[in-house]
Nucleic acid binder design. Structure first.
Lengths: 207, 207
DNA sequence: ACCTGAACACCGTTCAAGT
DNA sequence: ACCTGAACACCGTTCAAGT
């Protein structure tokens, strides 16, 4: 048997892609606090130092993980329907991604110069241009939509972290968090509706 | 001399207020990363464990520090001028506070259920009511303004952190004194103008 | 070249011991 | 009652040593 040209590499071969994939899995399962050098190394069956051969730092890993999620969103996104519908779809796409991966929201708010966010900014801008927004107003309009998106993103990320923590606390004892009743999460659907309402308000203010 | 009713306590007596005050000073000077149990204890000339006699945790301390800053903003705030002017002033007041204390922006985005933010939300709501916004639209309108405020807040906080880090990297070789507070923003005024532009857009969309 | 895992310099928090 | 500061259980990152 000839094995020298075997395309199937060892399953346990480490690479940046495999590390990012494992990191996303951990982040989805247990939040940003759950991603440590050691937990990641354990899930990859390797030593804790091995990761730094492929990724410069934990921050860079987090950035790359966010970029990979956002890239998936913008990839399948076309300029469909009216410009307004197209903007709504773009905003909702990012919103849904954050709902599925709350740590993305926290990270986008923490590092707004991330490549992922710059791309979203330009996607918004080009659609506003199609909408007929004058060149002079374009920057402010796109900034407002992006600012709103970031704000909601961080709110959502925080709410999920809170419910994660209170869940944990409630399991520990029956003592309840003083603010827990005020912040009980509404249905996901209501979040979406409320988010769109905000987008609608801003669009009305632009046009 | 009667000393039993002496109001002037020992200068080195520890209290929650003094701890929060010292924490704000450190946060302003060196950002959230600069506030550690040990640095705070050192600045108060006490042991690292003493802090936990007055404050439950680092997170609670951060929360209290943010509340104290925001309370200063809303305290001197009246319903002056037209409702629209009043909203602009409220939003700008918080914006300016975040500009002066960037760590506040990051913390507000991280914990949006903070008492400080709830208060801002209600302040916005009452002004929108005066503006004549129908009851049914009030929640969405206030949420949009607050969401935008949070987004800009976190962006601003992140930008300051970025320039702090690059400053530090640039100064790597030369002798640097530990006090490096003056992170000169390139265009504070432009930031303000852009922020108001966003508020204007949203207000236009509401009315 | 890639990986290991002990070691380093931190961190927040606790707690027996002091005053 | 309040404070001390060593100790504990972590953390990200490094690096001599292995393969």
């Amino acid at each position: 048997m000839v094995e020298s040209k075997n395309k199937v590499r060892r399953v346990d071969a480490l690479s940046k892609d495999r590390i990012v994939l494992a990191a996303v899995e951990i982040l989805d399962a247990s939040g940003e606090g759950g991603l440590t050098t050691r937990s990641l190394a354990a899930s990859l069956n390797t030593g804790s130092g091995a990761i730094f051969h492929h990724v410069g730092s934990r921050d860079e890993l987090l950035r790359t993980a966010v970029d990979s999620v956002i890239a998936d969103v913008t990839a399948g996104m076309a300029h469909e329907g009216t410009p307004e519908e197209s903007i709504r779809m773009l905003m909702l796409g990012v919103f849904d991604a954050i709902q599925a991966h709350p740590w993305v929201g926290a990270q986008l708010a923490r590092e707004p110069w991330q490549p992922a966010l710059l791309e979203i900014f330009f996607e918004i801008g080009s659609r506003l241009q199609l909408l007929g927004v004058p060149e002079a107003e374009l920057f402010d309009a796109a900034s407002t939509l992006l600012g709103y998106l970031l704000g909601v993103a961080s709110q959502h990320a925080a709410a999920v972290n809170l419910s994660r923590n209170t869940d944990r606390a409630n399991r520990r004892a029956s003592s309840d968090h003083p603010f827990a009743p005020h912040v009980t999460r509404l249905a996901d659907h209501d979040d979406r509706v409320q988010f769109v309402a905000g987008v609608e308000i801003i669009l009305a203010g632009i046009a």
